[in-house]
Design a protein around this nucleic acid. Structure first.
Lengths: 345, 345
DNA sequence: CAAAGGGATTGAAAGGTTTCACAAACCTGG
DNA sequence: CCAGGTTTGTGAAACCTTTCAATCCCTTTG
């Protein structure tokens, strides 16, 4: 039962070798692997011994080839360094685990070319399905892939058509509750910080902000736009400086940031410039990433059910591969406001 | 050239179908795919047209089966929600891209069972190699996998033996420069916050801290241990409260945190308790994650060349699969101190 | 005691690609 | 116009597993 490990490895052992070593047929080895109950305990033991002896490792390629599909899900994330997406991925993992599937993560890092490359490879791998937060939710490629037979679920974006399942969060509502809260805290001149001209999500959040103002009888001029190019900490810092530069008469007393990173940047500028939060400036972020609560002044933020989002997306995907007749579903979650020190005077 | 999309999909088209449609042999289709220069432009065009027409998608399983190995690298990360690891992964992606390989990310989330499951699946997939930051760098499983033929590179840990390539950062040195800096700033009573009893890395950092003290002629009693269970923001908060509770006479004036998350937690407690940073307490973190610079008081931190780490790891892996005779290499990077406001009085 | 039934095992086919030795067609220059 | 070389194209084998109908052997039943 001892094994030599010296010398050039002869060649990885396959089921055929196992069968030979155990003195049974190939089919029996397969049965041990796939339907152990169909095999007598004695033979099973023999086969298992042989497998151990030969260090047998199942060849998934061959399996897949035969079976036609794999036991792998993939999530193509928009930004692997954004904690939001890693949390979403964690939710997917939960669901994948239950279905005895592997989840592979791919990071497109906002680059369409990278996204495309990953999608191509995943399709070639015949993964069971693709979860994706796409750079462009309406890219035709996604539809093509779905039409060619690999289920695609769009995560945290809502594509135009109804060609995929999708899960998203109601961003208009999120913007609304954020700003409603600020109004309730007595603010009536509120900065909106983000790139709403570029990104659909951000546009929605701003839309919600306007709706909250309107509901309070305040016109759109009560929202002061500080437009950024992206949603990074640096953008937040920059916006903070611009905000601090405004004459006191028209300077907002509160800021609604399109994203927690921006809010953290803003918070940092406030610390630098000795503006007190929330006394001089109340801040609401968006996403409620772990670092929002961990900030020096814990940040009020709009929380999206991230893990839930991921889990649901994965479940929709599994449903699509299981169900005989599948109707694409668009699930929309409702975000919730988490109030912390940054808005409580 | 138009295509019907209605009806039950007949069955994905394979190279055989393409060959038939183009009126050439199977081998020619393969040549178009793999050695286009061996095929006359005319036939190539015909074949490519047929591929487009039939929406042909290469079957990677079959390819792999034939080729014996895949075009995929995998990184099994210890903690997908820790920005440190996602940055490392980004570096790997750079290297993988250049080698025209895909990088799949797996998140073990500190769970040995999950790690094991992923490793098993990856081995079965016959991935080209496995990059891993293991829960336990000395787990025998890693060695077995390597012996069975899948190269393994250990990232950010240094395994006992020399059975794998590995890349790591000199944690002793990192601890040393952190504390040396604090000493230079005039501190001589320094808190060490972390779980050095559990985690090797943290032990090393503490080791370095002691070395710096010694070099300055200060005994180990000048290091005040505040031991945590893990390295989260919450742990940092807790340690901060304990620290604040110490009598002023023995309370450290500076803290070296095993990790930026802990430092952020500590910073938060300081804000809550109105302790000024750095005046009342200087803070050094470790890792220099993005949020370290983004904190209200920008955090001095020990930066590891994360991206570089990942890139090098991937390159070692590729070298191992390429080289005829391979010698395992242990690469150790040197960290660097990034000084920011949190230690500058 | 024969036949039926059932559990265990077998053998061969299939799945889509790559590779490689080989055949066919074409071209060069003598 | 042919020998020899080059360029294109072909066909079959191999990769490793799963599946399924067929076989075998043993037990049970009538």
């Amino acid at each position: 039962m001892t094994v030599q490990q010296s010398g050039a490895e002869p060649r990885a052992a396959g089921m055929k070798d196992v069968a030979a070593a155990a003195g049974v047929s190939l089919g029996t080895v397969s049965n041990v692997l796939n339907r152990p109950d169909r095999v007598s305990p004695a033979t099973r033991a023999k086969v298992e011994a042989a497998m151990a002896e030969l260090r047998f490792v199942r060849n998934e390629s061959a399996r897949q080839l035969r079976a036609g599909r794999s036991r792998v899900l993939a999530y193509v994330m928009l930004d692997g360094s954004n904690p939001f997406f890693t949390d979403v991925a964690a939710g997917m993992e939960d669901a994948a685990d239950e279905g005895d599937l592997s989840l592979f993560l791919c990071n497109s890092a906002h680059q369409p070319s990278r996204e495309e490359a990953y999608l191509g490879r995943l399709e070639q791998q015949r993964v069971q399905g693709i979860l994706i937060t796409p750079v462009d939710p309406d890219a035709p490629l996604l539809r093509e892939i779905a039409r060619r037979g690999t289920p695609v679920v769009v995560v945290d974006r809502t594509p135009d058509g109804t060609e995929h399942c999708s899960v998203a969060v109601d961003d208009v509502y999120g913007g609304e509750i954020a700003v409603r809260h600020l109004i309730e805290q007595g603010h009536d001149r509120i900065a909106f910080i983000g790139n709403h001209t570029t990104v659909g999500q951000v546009r929605d959040r701003r839309q919600g902000a306007l709706r909250a103002l309107q509901a309070a009888g305040l016109g759109p001029d009560h929202l002061v736009d500080l437009t950024t190019t992206a949603l990074t900490v640096a953008d937040g810092r920059g916006a903070g400086e611009r905000l601090a530069g405004l004459p006191a008469a028209i300077r907002p007393t509160a800021a609604f940031c399109a994203n927690d990173l921006v809010a953290l940047g803003l918070l940092q500028t406030c610390a630098t410039l000795r503006m007190r939060v929330p006394e001089d400036l109340a801040i609401v972020g968006y996403d409620d990433i772990e670092f929002a609560a961990a900030a020096a002044v814990p940040l009020t933020s709009v929380r999206q059910p991230r893990r839930r989002l991921g889990r649901t997306a994965a479940e929709l995907l599994l449903a699509e591969t299981t169900e005989t007749s599948h109707e694409h579903r668009q699930v929309v979650f409702t975000p919730e406001l988490v109030v912390r020190t940054s808005t409580l005077r």
